[in-house]
Design a protein around this nucleic acid. Structure first.
Length: 428
RNA sequence: GCGGGUGUAGCCAAGUGGUUAAGGCAUCGGAUUGUGGUUCCGACACUCGCGGGUUCGAGUCCCGUCAUCCGCCCCA
């Protein structure tokens, strides 16, 4: 076949499933609006250095998953592998925090990672996320988590688990890192090969290895929570207290270590049991040093991102959504009739009634068959005879009841017609 | 990047080296040239993801490649 297909790891979102996307986007948009969050849109590509510095050179995302290329001006460009770095860059560039005010931001759009695709993992995928920049209180962490759980709940997604942890501040973490390396080094030979590599590069990630042997070794490792400073511990406890007050169930997972370098203090993840290996549906945390790291003033911040495709997978399992159907199907035959029918159709549409117009001019049998398949409640029919008399037939498909009215009268009583449609909708 | 499974029409598929590649759904045409959801008839894969090889003969076996799925890694 000489035809061209969508690239590996990319997908077309077809009409049959786009309803789920719209549902998700609508709910997210309304939830953000209620919480006084404003949308921000940043470029899809940025200087490579932004991500290298922001996400961390040692991370897998930067090390092996970025779509990086050189443009015609010899600049190194990268398709965004996540939103936070770009949003923070915009925050700094436009001095959004200059008044010392809090910025509550949300975003939605595609991101790109060069990975091997599997269920719930694509090379171009979509995220919806929130960033609260300029406030370091535990209440900020909780606000952001509450918005995430609110959205998921409105989507009707049950059996999701919220895990939280604290990775402390940078000092806590470097102390802990040292302790962990000291503990693990004697076992080095017994660790799985991935974990051996991570021992120097990113030892905290060894904690969540899936290798059984590694897990038994890690059982007795020192705990990150024991290395938290007084202020870090208090912060974490306050977060937990407020989550309890909001009756948002959570589990403390001391092994939860997120893969991006910028996290401090609170880290959290929301997972589903119904997605196989790619279980995380929402991930986020606090990142108090990132703004400064990217050249801004020291500014605390917290945020999360949701994976849209993974949520859609869950929604599809949960619901059978009927596709959008028109209320009215218009059938016509003959040039004059078709012209009159088109005028009627546009009038109805301008009155906010959903109308599908049959363009085929085929015999009435065919057109009625399509009318039936369309799911419309009512058929408007204009043939040669009706065109001659400037009338039309109104046929209710469920009852087969058909009446003839003049086109002028039909347009004058369009509100009555709409009410009849509502009645039929109501009977469902 | 590593390990394993799969790939026949728009969709679901039968096919286990031998004449013209079952069947179902959907679609289109007709029976019924102005009225639907039923029924009946007909059409719909010069070819089995793509390329090469073995063989008298390949959808079927082998190699490569692409895509997809599962797991690892990682993340949303």
């Amino acid at each position: 076949m000489g035809s061209i297909n969508a690239l590996r790891g990319t997908k077309d979102i077809l009409p049959a499933e786009v309803g789920y996307w719209q549902q998700l986007e609508t709910i997210a948009y309304q939830t953000f609006a209620r919480a006084a969050y404003q949308e921000i849109r940043t470029p899809i590509f940025e200087q490579t250095e932004l991500f290298a510095r922001g996400i961390g050179e040692a991370t897998d995302v930067v090390g092996k998953e970025m779509y990086t290329f050189t443009d015609r001006g010899d600049r190194s460009i990268t398709l965004r592998p996540e939103f936070t770095a770009g949003v923070v860059r915009a925050f700094i560039q436009h001095s959004l925090g200059s008044q010392g005010s809090v910025q509550r931001l949300w975003y939605a759009g595609p991101v790109f990672r060069y990975e091997r695709p599997q269920a719930g993992r694509q090379r171009q995928f979509h995220q919806i996320g929130a960033e609260l920049i300029g406030n370091g209180s535990p209440a900020a962490d909780v606000e952001v988590i509450a918005i995430a759980t609110d959205i998921l709940q409105q989507l009707g997604l049950k059996s999701l688990k919220l895990d939280i942890n604290s990775v402390g501040n940078q000092e806590d973490r470097s102390n802990y890192r040292e302790a962990l390396i000291n503990y693990l080094t004697p076992y080095k030979a017994e660790l799985d090969s991935d974990s051996q590599d991570r021992l120097t590069r990113n030892p905290l990630r060894i904690l969540d290895s899936k290798n059984e042997n590694t897990q038994t070794i890690v059982q007795n490792a020192p705990q990150l929570l024991d290395y938290l400073s007084e202020t870090s511990r208090i912060h974490f406890e306050q977060v937990q207290g407020m989550l309890n007050a909001l009756e948002i169930p959570f589990t403390i997972n001391p092994r939860l270590v997120r893969g991006l370098d910028y996290y401090t203090h609170t880290a959290f993840e929301i997972q589903s049991d119904d997605l196989g290996a790619q279980a995380t549906v929402c991930g986020g945390g606090r990142y108090d040093t990132l703004v400064e790291q990217l050249g801004g003033k020291p500014t605390p911040a917290v945020g999360w991102a949701m994976g849209v495709e993974r949520l859609i997978l869950l929604l599809e399992k949960l619901q059978t959504r009927s596709p959008e159907t028109p209320a009215v199907y218009v059938v016509s035959r003959g040039d004059q009739a078709t012209s009159q029918a088109m005028v009627l159709t546009q009038k109805l549409r301008s009155q906010n009634i959903a109308v599908e117009f049959d363009l085929t001019g085929a015999n009435f049998k065919k057109q009625f068959k399509r009318a039936d398949n369309s799911g419309a409640q009512v058929c408007l029919v204009i043939g040669d005879a009706e065109a001659e008399a400037t009338t039309l037939n109104v046929k209710w498909l469920a009852t087969q009841a058909q009446t003839t009215v003049t086109q002028a009268e039909f347009l004058n009583t369009i509100e009555t017609f709409r009410a009849q449609l509502q009645d039929h909708l109501g009977q469902g």
